[in-house]
Amino acid sequence: MRELPDFEIYSPSSLRDLLEYLHGDGRDATIIANGTDLLPRIRRGELRPRRLVDISGVRELRYIREEGGVIKIGALTTISDLAGSHLLSHSRYEAFHVLSRMFGTWEIRNRATVGGNLGAAASSEDLIPIFLALDARVRLLSLGGERVLRVDELVVAKRRTSRRGDEVIAEVSFKSLGEGEWSYFQKIGRRRTHIIALVSLASYLRLSPDGVIEDVRLAFNRVRGKIPERAWRTEEFLRDRRIDEEVISGAERVLESELRLTSDYRASYLYRTEVAKVFLRRALRHSRDMVLGGVESVAEA
């Protein structure tokens, strides 16, 4: 009764095989990683692909390594792989750790992939704001070579990326985090797990030993319209300031003027704006307390 419509599927066994297929017959094929987003969409009738190319067997694309101060993550890396990786085990990679409870279900985390999350490009994809906050680069491979894009160059609109038909999202990379740096991720839905975010904030901060913000990146799942974007003006306001309550209030005001959130059946823009401000406040307090130690007050709104 609930079967999927039939389609052709090609399962390349190596990256080379995949790229040759995408270069030839498979140029118009829909790429499927493990299908946690794509298959429900096909079942709902949102997509009716004639031909799929199944990259789940291309094992060369599943890895997490650190090379020359850069973390490199293969596209087939799962959410469970990220949350359990020893390379990302330092507490400053907290943005990834919280995913082990907040991203989908355990079954989904075992299947959902980094490349799939970026390629699906829905407003609910948690990794898009996280990679924006980490200023990540996405490597696309084709038979002809490679392109390296920023996340905002890849994800151009809701459900639309700039990937060409002969390319595959192969890798995401970002600078390893060190002393004084902290990544964090918050999202809210109607329950504590398996949430599609009404509002999410991925944050990155680099603080000097005396608490001055040397660098900051704040990516919300929506800022204007429906794709994740950085809150540029709020970042600009925060740079070179020391995090105290006055600065936090000032940042909230800038954020409020910068956000152009919309209402939908899930939540009103007023609610989203309020939560976004609370998330900003918590991100600043939490990151400061974690980096500088000596927690004075646990971040509570």
Binding site: S11, G35, D54, S80, T105, W106, E107, R111
Partner: peptide, 15 residues
Amino acid sequence: GEPINSCITLTAQAN
């Protein structure tokens, strides 16, 4: 050994 949802897994991908 890992729990997965068999309703959104293609048999071809379980090869």
